[in-house]
Design a binder for these strands. Structure first.
Lengths: 121, 121
DNA sequence: AGATTGTGCAACAACTAGGTTGCACATCAT
DNA sequence: ATGATGTGCAACCTAGTTGTTGCACAATCT
């Protein structure tokens, strides 16, 4: 397994990686083709190969792509696990916030009631 | 509904907003307190009020916080809708990728089979 | 009115990110 | 062996981010 606390620790890098439009574009291209090299990908984009390489390195660091060397070429492919994990993390986060806010609201309302009828009248 | 294409268009800004640790920290603080001013928040962080204000502006632009002026103070509060929407978007995206990759895999395997028994023997 | 407190605005410094180009090195085909 | 193709490394530029500080302005309290 060796998952460790990737789930929490990597969310940071996944969010950062996905926040760039060009990187999302790269992931789209990879989803289209299943596998591709930086050189090929660069041909389909208005940027240099080097720019693509850098983006792919970021995606790799975030665990969003897999890298495989075949002879003289390096093939990249999407790994959906990271995105899925982050999506779940976000959903849980929003949920947590919602619960906390609901609690705060209840407390506030209770205080409001108390201040109106101080109970020891 | 008035949602327009917020769902797609805003994902960009939500991801960008969430990709910064300090902003996530701010959201956490807001979830704790329910509502707070930039001045108060800055007291709990190792940065100036102005830095906090800028972050809150970013969060506001992404629709992640609501802003309410009360007298001379400006109160910020979390809005979970944006995060929820983005979480769903991500989940859908990962799903789409998975499907596309599965399809590619099937095609590749079919081709493999064909090449082994070319049918017109 | 006068002091206090909370914001808003603007200029500035430091750092990071996305992108470029040039060249060296490795691998494959002829 | 040679040429073509694909990568890797490094220096560099530009623009945007994050953070700062100083000061003016608005609202509140005594």
């Amino acid at each position: 397994m060796d998952e460790r606390d990737d789930t929490v620790e990597t969310v940071d890098s996944v969010l950062a990686a996905l926040s760039d439009p060009r990187r999302r574009q790269l992931l789209d291209l990879l989803a289209e083709q299943g596998e591709a090299t930086a050189t090929t990908l660069a041909e389909r984009l208005p940027v240099s190969r080097q720019a693509v390489v850098k983006h792919l390195a970021t995606l790799d660091a975030a665990g969003l792509v897999s890298v495989t060397r075949v002879g003289r070429e390096v093939r990249y492919a999407i790994r959906t696990a990271g995105v899925n994990a982050t999506a779940q993390w976000m959903a849980a986060l929003a949920d947590d916030w919602d619960r906390r806010l609901a609690k705060i609201k209840r407390v506030a309302e209770a205080a409001e009631r108390d201040s109106r009828s101080p109970r020891h009248d």
